[in-house]
Amino acid sequence: MKSAVLAGLRTQETEESWAQKLDEAALLCEACGIEVKTRLTQKAQKRHPRTLFGSGKVNELKQACEAQSAEGIVFVNELTGIQTRNLEQETGFPVIDRSALILEIFERRARTRQAHLQVEAARLAYQLPRLIEGQIHADQQQGGGVRNRGTGETRLERSRRTIEKQIRNIRLELDQLKLQQAVQSHRRRQSGLPRVCLIGYSNAGKSSLMNALLSLRSISPAKQVASADQLFATLDSATRRIKLAGRAEMLLSDTVGFVRDLPDFLLDAFESTLQEIQEADLLMEVIDASDPQWELQHEIVMRTLHRLHAAHIDRMRIYNKADQVPQWDRKDGLLLSCLTGQGLQELIAGLISRLNLTDRAFPEIGDEFSSQVSYNEDERGE
């Protein structure tokens, strides 16, 4: 699907909140390489159980796709398997919802074995209830006699068991990788280096900040992390050892960004990656100060931290993209720019103070400290 009509049902959201939801969905489409031809929304008190929209709006949706030469439909709302099937039948176009869109983005961004396994586990967890709902119509029991009973149910049950077995197998492999992570984490603790984790809304500039700190210390570009001006540019956590000043050093980890209403199955699947957050000594929350919705994004980050049981960890607030902000009066965080370098020296001084780092030497970390798995490479930045 290279182009689509962006659709959604507005129920209780305010006009401003709904507009923000649509804008973010459009950015998700862009991150997935889907051009949004037009937007079509309906306001109603409740969802239509068959098609989410009413029949008249479904017909309008079909006409919009035809008029705009769109290849499919992306719904902002979560759809059931039956709703997806009915919408596809009545419009004649493929239909996906926001969760499926995020899964597609994650699948495209996955680069390592761990990321691929996590995405596959999430995809199966997403598919499981929709498979059951979507196949009921095709597997109905035939007749009323006892001998004919259970024909469809057996088929559905078999499909469900197959998917559950696949999920179990994936989790077993992820558990093996998690054991390797535990060994790595133990070595970090033995090093005595403070562990700092970058968190924040997707596309706030976490990876850019890590690269800016690495560049400031003239560290090889090969040790920088991938960054891009798009949602979910980073999936795999990456950790680098960074010298702040003198002998003051820290381990800095980059993690996957958050978005509103991040599905539970994605949080569950990426548990091992997000464990970096739970084990940190300090969380650096990166906020895009140029985004008019930054306060809402901060609230979403905080809600996600509560879901991860990490809200108690000490936090440092970083307002990024100072070069795009004409005036800034807030004093509850540090304003900086990863692009121009403004505020980076102040950040380093703040980290040394916050982490209570002195001019003490940390032990050398050789090959034994480097990750033994490909998904989380630790490198000493000198």
Score class of each variant (00 low, 15 high):
D268R: 08
G134K: 08
T80M: 03
V119N: 07
E104W: 02
A110C: 14
I73Q: 10
A289Y: 02
A289T: 02
Q372T: 13
G343I: 03
L27V: 06
R315E: 11
V119E: 08
M250V: 10
S202D: 06
A64F: 04
M302D: 13
T91R: 06
G200I: 01
E16Y: 10
G144R: 05
A4Q: 07
T358E: 13
F369V: 09
T11C: 11
L252P: 06
D236F: 05
P49D: 03
K223T: 10
Q20R: 15
A248Y: 03
L172T: 08
H186P: 09
E153Q: 10
M250G: 04
I105Y: 00
A245F: 13
D254V: 07
G33P: 12
F265I: 12
T11H: 06
L262V: 02
T91F: 08
H309R: 14
G8V: 02
V373A: 13
G200P: 05
K223Y: 15
I170L: 07
L344P: 04
E276Y: 12
T273C: 00
R195N: 07
V373M: 09
L9G: 03
C338E: 01
F75K: 00
G341C: 04
G381I: 04
Q142R: 14
E35P: 05
Q327E: 12
L87S: 08
I73L: 08
V146I: 15
A238P: 01
R111I: 09
D175P: 04
V286K: 00
L209F: 05
L124Y: 09
A7T: 07
N148F: 14
I82Y: 10
R85G: 01
A7P: 08
E90C: 06
L9I: 10
V95W: 05
R123A: 08
R188L: 13
I167T: 01
P129V: 08
A349S: 11
A204R: 12
S215E: 15
C32F: 02
T11M: 13
D367K: 13
T151I: 13
F75V: 02
Q190I: 13
H312Y: 12
P363Q: 08
R187Y: 07
L193D: 00
G152V: 01
R147Y: 09
V74A: 00
F93C: 08
T340Q: 05
A115P: 11
L87V: 08
P221V: 13
E88S: 07
S237N: 11
T239M: 07
G81M: 06
L283Y: 10
E133Y: 10
L252N: 01
R98I: 03
D175I: 05
H309S: 15
H48V: 00
L193C: 01
S69D: 14
P326F: 04
P194I: 01
L334Q: 12
R360C: 14
L335Q: 10
H298D: 12
R109L: 00
E164I: 12
Q114Y: 01
E71M: 10
R109W: 00
I170W: 02
G257M: 05
N59L: 14
A311R: 02
